[in-house]
């Protein structure tokens, strides 16, 4: 049970999908025009990710490793088709709003990434926990970015006006450039926070700075960020 909680919570902060792992960036950038579409996309990914992790973990011992990627893609594509049909039936306005990005959940790296890195190696209950945690983290991040962009770009939050009278919305925030800028600045803020934490710890003497032969030059930092 302890392990279950651990896998569940790691997706919420320590390995927060779009920020820490930098996987599945396209929906993160494209559908966060408003908080509500962010949350809708996040829920769809949560559904697909949890179920695909569960199914893949169930069949992990049957699938030969050479054809595993094709099998993973088939499983997730089937689930995405299910989500598409469900959304058309119960959430049609959202389906229209997300447009082409609903079928594109298939090629969201996070689904395949978690399948390969986690579900294919772990028992069913842990795979479900991982899927749930990552999906929730993804939903949170999308809602967060969507909120920032909607508040700055349109002056509303979930459709309700929140800014003062006479506020001039930065229309650019709800356009494509705003997505890049917003994600880049959020990542920078997170990096800054993490770096300060490390510095604080090393000043207290409890932990050394992560050892690197060249004294932590920028090339190493770039290498680390890429992983």
């Amino acid at each position: 049970m302890n392990r279950f909680m651990q896998e569940l919570t790691k997706g919420l902060w320590k390995e927060l999908p779009p920020f820490r792992l930098l996987l599945g960036l396209c929906p993160v950038l494209a559908v966060t025009k408003s908080a509500s579409s962010g949350i809708g996309m996040g829920m769809a990914v949560l559904f697909v990710l949890t179920l695909s992790n569960m199914l893949i973990s169930m069949v992990r011992n049957i699938i030969p490793s050479k054809v595993r990627i094709a099998c993973f893609i088939t499983i997730s594509a089937t689930l995405v088709v299910a989500v598409e049909l469900l959304m058309q039936a119960y959430a049609y306005p959202l389906y229209l709003q997300l447009g082409i990005f609903v079928p594109l959940i298939v090629v969201n790296c996070i689904i395949l990434g978690r399948a390969e890195a986690f579900a294919a190696k772990n028992p069913v209950h842990l795979a479900i926990a991982d899927g749930l945690g990552m999906g929730l983290g993804f939903t949170m991040s999308l809602t967060f970015l969507g909120s920032i962009r909607e508040i700055l770009g349109a002056g509303t939050w979930f459709g309700h006006p929140v800014m003062w009278d006479g506020f001039q919305p930065f229309t650019i925030m709800v356009e494509a450039p705003g997505a890049f800028l917003c994600l880049g600045l959020t990542l920078a803020a997170m990096n800054y926070g993490t770096h300060r934490q490390i510095m604080k710890k090393s000043r207290e003497g409890s932990e050394e700075l992560p050892a690197s032969p060249c004294g932590g030059c920028r090339a190493c930092a770039m290498g680390r960020n890429k992983d």
Partner: peptide
């Protein structure tokens, strides 16, 4: 690669911000 970038921005964040500026010019 040869420029000085603030530590927090190094790597992906600066790349994303540049992508934003590039996207702005494509607008």
């Amino acid at each position: 690669e040869t420029c000085r970038v603030p530590r927090a921005l190094a790597g992906t964040p600066i790349a994303l911000i540049m992508a934003g500026i590039m996207s702005l010019s494509f607008m």
